[in-house]
């Protein structure tokens, strides 16, 4: 076997649920334990990457249990091996992978909780930017305000679910959640953002959620506000800005 063939064959066998082929075993120095020695690497591959996935998805692990999570993680690592040199955000395809498992495909909320967890870690490692400062707005003529295009912090992720995923996620931040949450408790609009050093996960009203969506796609404050009050007539822009205009939610102009 050439070096390239050997390295490819080794990788194929690491990833495979089956025993390594004889052609590969023939390349290993045999002392009666060659297969077991190879299996140390196969096991490491599954465990090291499975641990990275478990770090990304602690709530999913709690919801489905350790042993079920381990089985799913093994299948996931084999199907979606890491493409990046850094394992910081390994597991991008895990929400869709969960949806593809027949036993779980009815549990749509699981995929949404997984999306929330993924967004949390992406936000944690997102770019750092200067925040919008008060003087940048006060220096502006008042009539220009609604023509502004505010940029939300690059860590921001907006997540809409038909299920109360924010409450599910929040209740499962502790080891023994006591809260009983019904899946019929309604949809949630979740904002995940890291304006400073801490990732914040907030539930937003549908008006605020729409405003963020529109501002994020580059609309002016005026246009974004119009969209927000159409969907939530009681949406109060003044109250919203009093909380979020200068708390790091938005980038410097």
């Amino acid at each position: 076997m050439s070096l390239a063939d050997l390295q490819r064959s080794f990788c194929d066998a690491l990833r495979s649920p089956n025993a390594p082929p004889d052609a590969l075993l023939d390349e290993l120095l045999e002392d009666g334990l060659a297969l077991q020695r190879f299996n140390v690497y196969r096991n490491n591959f599954i465990v090291l990457n499975g641990d990275a996935l478990a770090e990304m998805y602690p709530v999913i692990k709690r919801l489905i249990g350790d042993s079920a999570f381990r089985i799913l993680a093994t299948a996931y690592v084999r199907e979606y091996p890491p493409m990046e040199r850094a394992l910081l955000v390994y597991g991008k395809d895990f929400p869709n992978f969960l949806a593809s498992i027949p036993e779980l495909s009815e549990l749509h909320y699981l995929q949404d909780v997984a999306r929330l967890e993924y967004a949390w870690t992406v936000a944690y490692h997102a770019e750092d930017v200067d925040r919008l400062e008060e003087h940048q707005i006060t220096e502006l003529p008042a009539e220009k305000f609604e023509l502004l295009r505010l940029r939300p912090h690059p860590s921001m992720c907006l997540l809409h679910s038909e299920y109360p995923v924010y409450r599910i996620w929040e209740a499962n931040q502790s080891e023994d959640p006591e809260e009983v949450i019904s899946l019929d408790d309604g949809p949630s609009h979740v904002v995940i953002i890291r304006p400073g050093t801490r990732v914040e996960t907030r539930e937003a009203s549908i008006g605020a959620f729409t405003l963020f969506q529109r501002l994020g796609s580059g609309e002016t404050i005026g246009d974004a506000y119009n969209a927000a009050i159409q969907i939530e007539p009681a949406f109060n822009l003044e109250l919203f800005f009093s909380q979020h205009l200068f708390d790091g939610t938005f980038c410097s102009l």
Partner: peptide
Amino acid sequence: SHGYEWYTHD
């Protein structure tokens, strides 16, 4: 640590 485009992390 890699024989394909993916990465073993070992």
